[in-house]
């Protein structure tokens, strides 16, 4: 069984003449909280989309260790196949099924990897009933876990930004993933929600054993959570290491944090 959940080797992604990812290599250990940071347009979301099968990089390889411990290639697989293999994700601008309730949103995630029984669904046979009960229980469990249980029957579009993040995390976890990819989870949340979110993300790893890969602009959140970081700039990895090492890395400071006399830790953009 491989120790690496993700093993990305010299991936290059181009859109026509534009190079979005240039020879990116990255690996993530099982159970690790890994962060990818970088200025806007550095290729962070492109990397996420390559890892989830939305984009197909032209060069390089992406290997993922699935539930059974088998190493599989992500490249060439469709997004839904990657998701079923155990890669869950949230989106930068939260994408929920906004006309459905919180409960239904999570339930869709919970039932997605069961086989489709059309006839069973049409006559509501015993297997369908059992499946429904199972996903109802799982959904309840997850809503309690992320702290949305009291909002289970609320239409998801009326949730606050912080709650939407929780919902997306719950929906992702419902697919029983090996790794959860979080695309700027703190965007649009207030300071109190940020602290709760940090706790939740850590809880996901500690209690569910799901590895976390996150992209984030909020340096406080990244430095508090991540055990290791990769820094992307212009589609290339320019540094890798522990939060302390990254903080003091001159290359990173120049590329990302702006000039050294800038006291704020936030990106100038």
């Amino acid at each position: 069984m491989s120790d690496l959940i993700f093993n990305v080797d010299s991936v290059t992604l181009r859109f026509g003449g534009v190079v979005s990812l240039n020879d990116v290599s990255l690996h993530q250990k099982r159970g690790e909280i890994l962060a990818v940071i970088g200025p806007n347009g550095a290729g962070k979301t492109s990397l996420f989309n390559s890892l989830t099968g939305v984009y197909q990089p032209q060069e390089g390889s992406i290997f993922f260790t699935n539930r059974e411990g088998k190493v599989i290639s992500i490249i060439g697989k469709k997004a839904h196949r990657v998701a079923s293999a155990g890669v869950a994700r949230t989106f930068q601008a939260s994408r929920m099924f906004s006309a459905l309730t919180t409960f239904e949103n999570v339930k869709i995630g919970a039932e997605s990897h069961r086989g489709i029984g059309v006839i069973g669904a049409m006559v509501k046979g015993p297997r369908t009933r059992r499946g429904e009960r199972h996903s109802d229980e799982r959904t309840e469990e997850l809503l309690k876990f992320v702290g949305l249980y009291d909002k289970a029957n609320v239409i998801s579009s009326s949730l606050s930004y912080g709650d939407r993040r929780r919902l997306e995390i719950a929906r992702g976890l419902a697919t029983d993933p090996q790794v959860l990819l979080l695309d700027e989870p703190a965007a649009g949340t207030n300071p109190a929600e940020k602290i709760q979110l940090t706790e939740l993300i850590r809880k996901v790893r500690d209690e569910m054993g799901v590895s976390i890969l996150l992209i984030e602009h909020d340096m406080k959140l990244v430095m508090a959570l991540a055990e290791r970081l990769y820094v992307l700039n212009f589609g290339s990895v320019i540094a890798e290491g522990s939060p302390e090492a990254i903080r003091s890395n001159p290359v990173v400071i120049e590329a990302y944090l702006g000039s050294s006399d800038d006291e704020s830790e936030k990106s100038p953009s």
Partner: peptide, 27 residues
């Protein structure tokens, strides 16, 4: 029955946001 089954929910999910639906493993 189909509308309120998981197939009906999957249809709703695809109709609303195909990318998000794919991200939870719906083909």
């Amino acid at each position: 029955l189909l509308e309120h089954s998981r197939i009906g929910r999957a249809w709703t999910a695809i109709r609303e946001d195909e990318v998000a639906a794919e991200s939870v493993g719906i083909n």
